[in-house]
Amino acid sequence: MQQETRKRMIKESAIWGFIVLELIFFSVAGHFLSLSENAFMDFENMLLLLKQSAPIGIIALGMTVVMINGNIDLSVGATFALAAVVMLDSMSWPIFAPLGDWVIPVSWALALLTGMVLGAINGFIVWKTGVDAFIVTLGSMLGFRGLVFMYNGEQPTFQLNWTMVDIAEARLFGLQTPTLVLIVCTVLVWLMLNKTIHGRNVYAVGDNREAAVNAGIRVGPHMMINFIIIGFLAALSSVVFYSASGSVNPNDGMLYELWVITAVVLGGTKLTGGKGSVIATFGGVIAIQLLRKGLGHIGADTAMVNLVIGSILIAVLYLDKQLNRKGDGDLKV
């Protein structure tokens, strides 16, 4: 029992150990290899890293919920883009003209609503058809992306509003807005998963769906709520990012779903559901961003970064499998 608890602790804090390892490696390697004068673990550099983690990180929180629930959502990248298009385009709609700068919260609300509606569509289809979420969201990934292109063709949608940029670039206690949003969302989702009945049911449904049905949990509506949550978070991520940049290309957000899933899996959430934690996902997001930034720091190009991250992901899952074995007496299958 003692050993079991220790094993569990090692596994749960593994991602943080990995982050520390990365920090040490890049600080030392950066000392010899980097072209820049600054140390890797420079305070400003770390703040920037947190800010850059936010877009993927906010979506990853939602993905953690959906994956613990035993589902997956591949449409988050497209939702991210479509929410941005709605937000930036709606700011110039004539009916909102009298609002002046008050159009900003209205547009934000519209973008968030878009995300929730898209999530609800995914959830509703999964609920009513019983088709696997992987397939449903694979379809909606293509479909939602189609909507983005229908909106403005190949053209970017842009809107420059300095008030909005000011809000997006504001700092509180030295932390930029995206970082703050990421941290607040992490806390909120953590509270939801660990302290509320809905949150505990997320685990129960993902762990043993039949047991949940037998216990009278209405699994369909329950899963739909989680798809609405991830849709909302994908849109929120989009709001945070595009409030600062003010311009969205129809191809933006592509492959986000894969980065998000990578971060969630690195954080130890089980692909089959029932197990996972948003704190560990937060760690997973930071770990990936550290790798990207760190490898850039020591002069590797993007292709190299992808290769390394991919290899690490497989290595982590292999290690996890080894840790889960109960010893030599275990069944060989």
Binding site: I197, R200, N201, Y203, A211, N214, A215, G274
Partner: peptide, 29 residues
């Protein structure tokens, strides 16, 4: 049930009250 109908990653208490966890304000457990 004949077949075990339990969620293994949850605690014993949560399994016993699965589907009807005692509720506080804001849907908290």
């Amino acid at each position: 049930h004949q077949e075990l109908s339990l969620a293994e990653e949850l605690s014993v208490a949560e399994n016993i009250y699965l589907g009807e966890l005692p509720r506080k304000s804001f849907g908290r457990v």
